[in-house]
Amino acid sequence: MSAVFERMYTVRWADMDPNGHMRHSAYADYAAQHRIEYLAQHGFTLQRFAQLSLGPILFREDTRFLKELHLNEVLRVTGELSGLSEDGSRWNIIHTLHKADGRPAATVAVEGAWLDLRARKLLVPPAEITALMQELPRHESYTDIVRKSS
């Protein structure tokens, strides 16, 4: 298991809603950006995924809003593994978006898998992707994902 992978972002004008705080979908955008940066930093750039003809997909996304974020506020995003299948084909990650003072502003929990971009079917990823996913810190709620055979 590796050290925490975290990124700092600044809330942009485009992230705002008419109520003067960050719009609901921007929380998911920052969580997605965090996942893509984690993969890219470890060699799985969008170009590499295109070469492999595979990509990550989501089945479910659940956001819990805890504290408001405002324009130009700095936020820190972390991601922890909350589930992984033995073959690495299914994964769950919980992202936490933190305010500058460290308080959680939101959590974004996602359930995902890997898609063969040519066949448009789910697949078991290359072993190095599974190993990379296993390196994510584990969330306190982590449970192995056990797939039932059909």
Rank of each mutant, 00 (worst) to 15 (best):
A3R: 15
V4K: 12
V4L: 15
E6M: 15
M8N: 13
Y9A: 12
V11G: 02
R12Y: 08
D15N: 09
M16Q: 05
M16W: 02
G20S: 12
R23E: 15
S25I: 14
Y27I: 08
A28S: 12
Y30W: 10
Q33K: 13
I36K: 04
I36R: 03
E37C: 11
Y38K: 06
Q41G: 12
G43D: 11
F44Q: 10
T45G: 07
L46E: 07
Q47V: 07
R48M: 04
A50C: 04
Q51H: 01
G55A: 06
L58Y: 09
L58K: 07
F59H: 12
T63R: 04
R64W: 02
F65D: 06
H70I: 14
V74R: 12
T78H: 04
L81F: 09
G83C: 08
G83W: 04
G83T: 14
L84V: 15
S85L: 06
S85R: 03
D87H: 10
D87I: 10
R90Y: 10
N92K: 15
N92S: 14
I93H: 02
I93N: 03
T96K: 02
H98Y: 09
G102T: 00
R103M: 09
V108P: 00
A109L: 03
E111N: 05
G112W: 01
G112L: 03
G112T: 03
A113M: 04
W114R: 03
L115F: 01
D116P: 10
D116E: 00
P126Y: 02
P126W: 02
A127P: 07
T130I: 10
A131Y: 01
L132M: 10
E135W: 00
E140V: 13
E140G: 07
S141C: 11
S141V: 10
S141A: 13
T143K: 07
T143N: 07
V146M: 06
R147G: 06
K148P: 05
K148Y: 11
S149L: 11
S149T: 15
S150F: 07
